Computed example of a mutant assay.
Amino acid sequence: MVFRLAHRFMANLSMAGALASALLFVAPVHAQNSPMSLSDRVARLEQQQQNQDQNKVGQLNQLQQLQSMIQQQQGQIEELQHQVQQLQDQNKAQYTDLDSRVGRLEKQGSAAPASSATAAQAPAASASAPNNAAPAATSTPAAPAESAAQKSAALNAYNAAFKSLRAGDYVSSSRGFREFIQKYPNDALTPNAFYWLGESYYATTNYQVAVEAFKHLLSQYPQSDKAADATLKLGYSQLEMKQTDAGIDTLKSVVSKYPNSNAAKLAQERLRRLSQSTR
């Protein structure tokens, strides 16, 4: 009896040990399948936040790059607008003067044939005079006829150079105006020839030579009707040569000396843009 009880007790004890071993084996498996620990969750949240911060930094960098590109493009647009305005100013000044020049040339062209006709009539009148008339009477009309021919030749030379200028052939126009000035230094169109000579050089960016032509006009023909425009283009040329202070002073002199001229309006506009660009 006692032996049986002892044997049963040992059997139960063995079963209890087996159960305990089984529990010890199952516990780690259960721990592996359980939710993450608090420290793991915190680490994951920190990693997610770090990733978000990196994304924000990348987006900020991209935004700054876009802003920089926009600023560069805006600067290029402003520079193009400035160049377009320069071209508009040049064309406006040239075409404004062109209208007045064509009017003057038409008047001079109509006057020249009249002089020629008068000269042609004089010899006919002398031919019909009596044979005992004074010899001087037949030689007097020769001088007006020669003067009319010279004026006609000068006008043709000037018109040829001006035609080249309007066609955009600035090399031919500058050559033509130089030859005109050399051949007809005392002609009424010589001051204008100096102005258009300067314009021909200005159009081809030969600013130093243009300055010399404009200055010669202003020094030798200060009362010319081209003085205002020559002063304006002198200022433009100085600005193109990076002589900013001299150019500004010249443009200011246009406004003060010729306040009611179109050149003064263009000078004021250029001065306004220069003032804005330095702010």
Rank of each mutant, 00 (worst) to 15 (best):
N33S: 04
S116F: 14
S14R: 15
L87M: 10
M36Q: 06
S224M: 07
L13H: 07
V42N: 05
E199M: 13
E179F: 08
K92N: 09
N132E: 10
A143T: 09
S21P: 00
Q243V: 01
Y236M: 14
V2H: 15
S173V: 09
Q52R: 12
A167Y: 04
N156S: 13
A157T: 02
E79W: 05
H30S: 10
S219K: 10
A93D: 02
K107N: 09
R272W: 03
M15L: 15
P113A: 00
S39W: 06
A228Q: 00
V171M: 09
N156H: 05
K215S: 08
P135E: 07
M10F: 06
Q76L: 15
Y201N: 06
A143V: 09
Q32C: 11
E269G: 07
M241P: 00
V171D: 14
T190F: 03
K151T: 10
V26M: 08
F25K: 07
R178F: 03
H82I: 03
K233W: 12
A160T: 09
Q59L: 13
S128Y: 05
T250L: 05
G103Q: 15
A122L: 13
N91A: 13
K233N: 05
N192E: 13
G75I: 06
T278M: 14
N206W: 08
A120Y: 11
S164C: 01
W196Q: 14
S275R: 12
F162M: 08
Q223C: 00
S34Q: 09
L232H: 01
L232R: 00
L251P: 00
R101M: 14
I181C: 01
T118W: 05
A203N: 11
P185F: 02
T190H: 01
K163M: 08
E106H: 08
Q72F: 04
P28R: 06
V255P: 00
A157R: 06
K56N: 11
V57W: 02
L189F: 04
I248D: 03
A193P: 01
T96A: 04
P222G: 01
F214A: 02
G198M: 07
R41L: 13
Q47H: 15
A122T: 02
Y184R: 05
L232G: 00
S110V: 12
F25C: 09
L23W: 07
V2E: 15
R270K: 11
H82P: 00
Q121N: 08
S126V: 13
P141W: 03
T231Q: 10
G247S: 04
Q48C: 10
L24H: 02
A213P: 01
L217Y: 02
H7K: 11
A129G: 04
T250D: 07
S256T: 10
G235E: 02
S34N: 09
Y170V: 01
A93I: 11
L63S: 12
S219L: 13
V57P: 00
A112G: 03
A143P: 00
Q49R: 13
P35S: 03
Q108E: 10
R273A: 07
